[in-house]
């Protein structure tokens, strides 16, 4: 089957990108192995909690300039507003806004800044038990994507991405084999190590689908767990339009969004969902502009 865009990764980034593209008539398929961090969400989204110096941020939109990934966006405020609308259109209600951080109290009794607190979702029990709220959000977004004509290939893993003459010419999936699905453009939204979007060995770090260029560091650190860890910022190298680099050059029809991007530390900045959604929307915009779709 041929599509306009195939998105690899069915988490918050993949779904956000897919919904944004589909809503503008782009024929989109999404391949998901089921390793989404969204399952563990306890019902709140973060945009920016702390700045580069580690100071708490109260007005995120004023502080995004100094943050990796956010710097590459062409209008963070507008994108944040569109992200909020996307969630609402998927049937998710929330309180909070990008202008000013709200606060939530975690199950450990710790108060921390957040962007949105979702209202009509089940209570979280234990965060890792693929909890109520996370699953609810995931399902709402999948429903929305499908209602816009998007196709979701669930429980399937993309692999063996072929790049020839600076463009992706095909991928395989575990269930469908090679050549079953193809597209003019691809989005890599497969997440970080915990989502299997990045794989590490004792010697190196790689991106398993396309062998994209990866930004990493060879030296293991001696840092305490609460210090920012370099590995959090490892990820796929891209150009300013979020095109994936391979052997130093941009792959013309391959984009990356979300946790797989290099340079961001979602723990340090408290910006996981913001990076995931805003980069996904920017990639959708870039694709539409580039293809004059």
């Amino acid at each position: 089957m041929k599509f306009d865009v195939i998105i690899i990764g069915g988490g918050l980034s993949g779904l956000t990108c897919g919904i944004s593209l589909s809503s503008r008539g782009v024929r989109t398929a999404l391949v998901s192995a089921g390793q989404s961090s969204l399952y563990f969400n306890t019902g709140s989204f973060d945009l920016l909690g702390w700045d580069a110096a580690g100071k708490p941020v109260s007005e995120p939109l004023k502080a995004l300039e100094g943050i990796p990934v956010y710097r590459l966006l062409s209008g963070a405020g507008e994108l944040a507003g569109r992200a909020e609308k996307l969630l609402r259109d998927a049937g998710l209600e929330f309180e909070g806004s990008a202008e000013s951080n709200s606060y939530r109290t975690t199950p450990l009794g710790i108060r921390r800044p957040c962007w949105l607190v979702l209202k009509n979702v089940p209570q979280a029990v234990l965060p890792w038990d693929k909890s109520g709220p996370g699953l609810h959000i995931q399902q709402a977004l999948v429903r929305r994507f499908r209602s816009l004509g998007g196709l979701v290939l669930v429980g399937d893993a993309a692999r063996d991405g072929k790049i020839e003459n600076g463009r992706v010419t095909g991928i395989s999936t575990e269930k469908l084999g090679s050549g079953a699905i193809s597209a003019s453009r691809y989005v890599l939204a497969s997440g970080s190590f915990m989502n299997r979007g990045l794989v590490s060995t004792a010697e190196e770090v790689h991106e398993p689908v396309f062998g994209s260029d990866v930004v990493s560091a060879p030296v293991r650190t001696d840092l305490d767990v609460f210090a920012p860890q370099p590995y959090m910022g490892f990820g796929v190298a891209t150009d300013a339009s979020f095109r994936v680099l391979k052997d130093g050059s941009p792959v013309s029809n391959l984009y990356a969004a979300g946790q797989i991007l290099a340079g961001n530390d979602p723990i340090k900045y408290g910006n996981a969902e913001g990076v995931q959604m805003l980069s996904a929307l920017q990639v959708a915009d870039n694709i539409i502009k580039e293809a004059a779709l």
Partner: peptide, 21 residues
């Protein structure tokens, strides 16, 4: 910290440091 051990470490950080704060 490589392979599954790194993936688990990142997941643990996500749960305890991000979600649980």
């Amino acid at each position: 910290a490589w392979g599954d051990t790194l993936a688990e470490a990142q997941f643990t950080a996500y749960i305890y440091q991000n979600l649980l704060g």
